[in-house]
């Protein structure tokens, strides 16, 4: 590669990377500086955990975090079951209407539940499940995207494996759980990472479904907390709250960044 191109790529790469880091650095700075110092533009050497502690005690973020873990985990567990079953059927079983049904599944990829908040709210209302954690989770129990991803992976496994197991007398469910699932582990990991980060970060749907504190998720709690503190002097608190809410996923990302980025890479649906 030409040196001039290399040099300009370096300039662009590191230049943008630096700019991209500014917002996060600024939030960390504001969250860990004493309130008076945070409002100015300078840096001081006195760091403090007071803001974090103050915020953690000021709103039930612990409860919100438990709720979020429960909802995110619950969605994932049910999704893994439904999509494994459907993916296997679409990949390996010839049944009447399979292709048509598969096309119908793709509709959810094009029109995801986030776009249907208005009508899904009404469906939930009809079922009497407003302001419940199950209500937040229900629309996401089936993932056409996951089915699509896993079906590809199942189809790529050699069919001979299944035939050999069948000759040995294994049932299809056993074949599914001992051959297909373990051999598709990377896809499961990819899907899990994408699903967890999506549901941990989701906001508008949990906002409209819940209105009690006992069912509130972290993102909604954060938004309510930020709304209740309007004046500039509160920015230390809001920054601290923002960090608390973002921290679990961010830490996970920093620890496993290769795998996380790889998962999002795999999640791109390609022909």
């Amino acid at each position: 590669m030409h040196n001039s191109l290399k040099l300009s790529l370096y300039g662009i790469g590191f230049g943008f990377a630096a700019i991209w880091l500014i917002p996060f650095v600024w939030v960390i700075r504001t969250a860990f500086l004493p309130k008076e110092a945070a409002i100015g533009s300078g840096w001081t050497s006195e760091w403090t955990f007071n803001n974090i502690v103050h915020v953690w005690n000021g709103a039930p973020f612990g409860q919100f975090m438990l709720n979020t873990v429960f909802v995110t985990g619950g969605v994932l567990v049910v999704q893994l079951i439904t999509l494994t079953m459907a993916a296997y059927a679409f990949a390996r079983i010839r049944f009447v209407g399979r292709n048509l049904l598969f096309m119908l599944f793709l509709v959810q990829i094009m029109v995801p539940p986030d776009a249907l908040i208005f009508s899904n709210y009404q469906v939930l209302n009809e079922m009497g499940l407003l302001d419940t954690k199950v209500g937040i989770m229900l629309p996401y129990f089936a993932s056409a995207f996951g089915v699509f991803l896993l079906r590809q992976s199942f189809k790529q496994l050699p069919y001979e494996l299944e035939e050999a197991a069948r000759v040995e007398g294994a049932s299809r469910l056993r074949i599914l759980s001992t051959i297909y699932v373990p051999l598709s582990r990377p896809i499961y990991v990819s899907f899990a990472i994408v699903s967890v980060s999506f549901h941990w970060n989701d906001f508008l749907w949990p906002l409209i479904v819940t209105n009690s504190e006992e069912n509130r998720l972290l993102t909604v709690g954060l938004a309510m907390f930020a709304k209740s503190t309007e004046s500039g002097a509160q920015w230390s608190d809001v920054s601290a709250a923002t960090l608390i809410v973002s921290a679990p996923i961010m830490i996970g990302f920093l620890l496993f960044q290769r795998q996380v980025i790889g998962s999002f890479m795999n999640s791109g649906i390609k022909g």
Partner: peptide
């Protein structure tokens, strides 16, 4: 540096 904003909730 470029990917991390994706990991932060939109509301944050």
């Amino acid at each position: 540096a470029f990917f991390y904003p994706n990991m932060i909730p939109m509301i944050a």
